[in-house]
Computed example of a mutant assay.
Amino acid sequence: MKFSRYFQELMLAYKAELDDLRSDSEGKDVMRHRLKEKREQLSFLLPMMASNPEMLAPAFHDAFLFMNPLNFEALASKEANKLPSWKSLSGAVKLEPWAEKMAQMVLAEEAGDTFMVTAACLEYLSRSHHTRASAVSSAEDDAEEQDHDGDADLHENGDLDGNYGRHGRDDGDDGDDVDLEEAGADWLAEQGFDRKD
C-alpha cells in the first residue's frame, strides 16, 4: 500500500499516541481508562483538530465499523486536501452508537469533516497494520518451523549424502562391525599394545 506524506507522518504519530495511552509508568494496561478520559476531554481538544489530528483521533479508537475496507486502502494515498467528505463514506464506514455524539460535536467544527475521514483512515490503518504484522509474523514462524522440521528430518534420516541410517545413527547392521574391530585392533597394536586373540 502506498501512503501519502500526510498519512505516513500521521500514522507514526497516531501509533505513538496509542502506545502512550496503552500503559502507565509501571507497565500496567490502562488504555481503557485513558481512552475514556480522552473522550471526556474531546471538547477541549477540538482546537487541535486541524493541526494535530493524532491527538484527538484516539478518542475514536474502536469507534468505526469498516464495511468496505478497499475505500480506506485508496484513501491512505491521498493528501488532506484531496480527502472526500465524511458523508460520502457512509457506505464504507459506520460509527458505533456510543461515538455518534462525539462525531456530531466534531462535524460541527470547520475542520470536522476532514478530521472524521482522517480518524477513520488512521484507525483502519492501525488495525490493518496489526493484522498484516500478525500475518507476517505467523508466516515467518511457519517458515522457521519448516526449517526446523527440515533439520530434524536431516538428523533423523542422515545427511544429504545418506550417511546415517533411518534413525540418525549407524546401527551396525551393514556388516561393518568386524572391519571396525580389526581396524581398532590394528591401531592398538601400532601403539604398542598386545593384540587380543
Rank of each mutant, 00 (worst) to 15 (best):
D170N: 15
V117G: 08
L122Y: 05
A59I: 03
E79H: 07
A99L: 06
E110L: 08
W98Q: 15
F60P: 04
F64G: 04
H167N: 14
D177A: 12
L125R: 14
L70T: 11
D159F: 10
M55C: 02
H167M: 07
L65I: 08
D141V: 04
A103D: 07
R132D: 01
D159A: 05
W98S: 14
K36Y: 06
E145W: 05
S137M: 08
M49S: 04
E144K: 09
P47C: 05
H130V: 01
C121W: 03
T118V: 12
M105T: 13
N157V: 00
E140H: 06
S126P: 00
W98C: 11
E100Y: 15
E181G: 12
E96H: 12
N52Q: 08
A111G: 03
N68S: 12
P69D: 06
A143T: 14
N68R: 15
P47K: 03
D173P: 03
Q146Y: 15
R169T: 13
D173C: 07
N163H: 07
A99D: 06
S138I: 05
R169L: 09
N163F: 11
L160I: 09
E96N: 06
L125T: 10
D179K: 13
R39W: 07
N157Q: 10
H167A: 10
G172A: 04
D159T: 01
A63P: 07
D159S: 14
G91A: 06
D159L: 05
A80T: 06
K78I: 01
S90R: 03
K78Y: 10
E110S: 03
F60S: 00
A57Q: 04
H129T: 06
D151R: 07
G172Y: 08
N81Q: 04
E40S: 10
P58H: 09
L125P: 13
L160G: 12
L154D: 08
S126G: 02
N163L: 04
N81T: 07
A59L: 04
L95Y: 14
E54Q: 03
N71H: 13
K94L: 03
E37K: 14
E40N: 14
S134E: 12
R166I: 02
G175A: 08
Q104K: 10
L89K: 15
K38W: 02
Q41H: 13
D176Y: 13
D159K: 02
R127W: 08
